[in-house]
Amino acid sequence: MLALVRLRRGVVGESRRVCHLIPVPTGPVPGHLTALCGESIFPGEAEVLDGLRGMPCHACLVRSAPSGTGLLANAG
């Protein structure tokens, strides 16, 4: 399962407040969470979003896409 999170205002500038995809841990809560793009998210730095909104992190999107040949053959 993935969570959609965005860094809070004041933690980073507005241009860096993108929506990251973070795998939800199944065990104990770690000291920080790591987005699919590699960004570390620490407690109190981000807000969990309840739906799609804001600018997505392009690197997270690329890493979440299924791999394989022909998946985008009929796109567009």
Rank of each mutant, 00 (worst) to 15 (best):
L61C: 09
S64L: 14
L61D: 10
G27V: 01
L33G: 03
V5D: 02
V48I: 12
G10I: 07
F42K: 06
R9D: 06
C19P: 00
P25M: 14
G27A: 01
E39N: 08
F42M: 03
V18M: 10
L72F: 13
G31Q: 10
G70V: 13
A59W: 00
V62Q: 01
R6E: 08
G54H: 14
L71P: 06
G54Y: 05
P28E: 14
T26A: 09
P28G: 06
R8F: 03
L72T: 03
G54P: 02
G54M: 13
S40K: 15
D50C: 11
C60E: 07
P43T: 13
L61I: 12
R16C: 07
G68Y: 07
M55W: 05
S64T: 08
G44N: 06
V5T: 06
E47V: 13
G31H: 11
C57L: 09
V18Q: 06
P25I: 14
H58C: 03
F42N: 04
P30G: 04
A65P: 01
T26Y: 00
H58P: 01
L71Q: 08
V18E: 13
L4M: 09
G51T: 13
G38S: 07
L4S: 13
E39R: 15
L61W: 05
C37Q: 03
E47K: 14
P43R: 15
V29D: 00
V48C: 05
F42Y: 14
R6P: 07
A65V: 02
L61M: 10
P56G: 03
G27R: 01
L49N: 10
R16N: 10
G31K: 06
R9C: 04
L52Y: 12
L71H: 10
L2E: 14
P56L: 13
A3M: 09
I22N: 00
H58I: 03
G44V: 01
A35R: 09
P43Q: 15
P56Q: 05
G70L: 15
M1P: 03
L52T: 12
S40Y: 02
E14A: 15
G44S: 02
M55E: 09
